[in-house]
C-alpha cells in the first residue's frame, strides 16, 4: 500500500488520506473570458511524471498539505506546506 508522510503525523497508509487533485491552481479574476474560466476549472496538465498535488489527512489530523509525486512510480519526491512555492522537481 502506498504511504504518505503527513507533516504532522508522520508516515501513514494511503487509506487515511484523500487526494484533492492538482495544487497551485490560481483562480483568475471574475472578469475573465469564458475560455479562461473554463481552462481554470477543467483543463489540467495531467502529467505522466511528477505531479504537484494536494492531499488531506482525512482520517487523521485533518490537515491539508502539498505533495510532489510521480504518477507512474507513485514515488513521493517531496512534501511541503500549502503556502510554499512549487519545488523544482518537474
Amino acid at each position: 500500500m502506498m504511504q504518505l508522510k503527513c507533516p504532522w503525523c508522520g508516515l501513514r497508509d494511503e487509506s487515511e488520506f484523500v487526494c484533492g487533485g492538482t495544487t497551485h491552481l490560481i483562480r483568475p479574476d471574475l472578469s475573465v473570458t469564458d475560455a479562461t474560466w473554463g481552462e481554470y476549472l477543467f483543463f489540467r496538465d495531467n502529467p505522466r511524471g511528477v505531479h504537484l498535488e494536494r492531499w488531506r489527512h482525512a482520517y487523521g489530523c485533518g490537515q491539508w498539505f502539498n505533495v510532489a509525486r510521480h504518477t507512474v512510480t507513485h514515488e513521493v519526491l517531496s512534501v511541503y506546506a500549502m503556502t510554499d512555492p512549487p519545488p523544482a522537481h518537474s
Binding site: 500500500m1 502506498m2 494511503e14 484523500v18 487526494c19 487533485g21 492538482t22 495531467n46 505522466r48 505531479h51 498535488e53 492531499w55 509525486r69 504518477t71 507512474v72 512510480t73 507513485h74
Partner: peptide, 10 residues
C-alpha cells in the same frame, strides 16, 4: 482516487 499512470491498482 489519485492521478496515476501505473497499471497496478491500489
Amino acid at each position: 482516487l489519485f492521478p496515476s499512470y501505473a497499471q497496478r491498482g491500489s
